[in-house]
């Protein structure tokens, strides 16, 4: 059964988490612990930091995230197409060209509207 492959993935997941946590546990045992108010401050500059770091960010980031999601979904369509291409034919190529053209139109629109300009 194919899912048994993923038994290994599950085990690997546990191993990786263990591998990450084991040295941290060791650190908790071995390393010194001398907290001080200054040490607990945010490492920003010599004097006391002002204001909260959790602020509103610019919208450009969000545009990139949206474009990322859109193109990520597109790749999910592209992979099965690519895997099946040998068994299909020219029609599949035409279909995919239309699909890609549609997506490229979206990208070109974003490009033309200048939302991809960083500043």
């Amino acid at each position: 059964m194919v899912a048994y492959n993923y038994v290994f993935v599950g085990l690997l997941l546990l191993t990786a988490v263990g591998f990450a946590l084991a040295p941290l546990a060791l650190v908790a045992l071995v390393a010194p612990r001398k907290p001080s108010p200054t040490k607990g401050d945010a490492y920003e500059c010599g004097v006391r930091a002002r204001g909260d770091a959790w602020v509103r960010f610019r919208i450009q980031y969000y545009v990139y995230a949206i474009m990322f999601v859109v193109f990520d979904v597109e790749t999910v369509f592209l992979y099965p197409w690519a895997a099946a291409y040998g068994a299909l034919g020219v029609f599949a190529l035409v279909e995919m060209t239309v699909f890609l053209a549609l997506l490229f139109a979206g990208l070109a629109y974003a490009w033309a509207k200048g939302v991809m300009r960083w500043t």
Partner: peptide, 12 residues
């Protein structure tokens, strides 16, 4: 060195 260094987590 990494293991024997103190683990510092900011207060906030």
């Amino acid at each position: 060195k990494l293991i024997v260094k103190e683990n510092i987590v900011p207060r906030h």
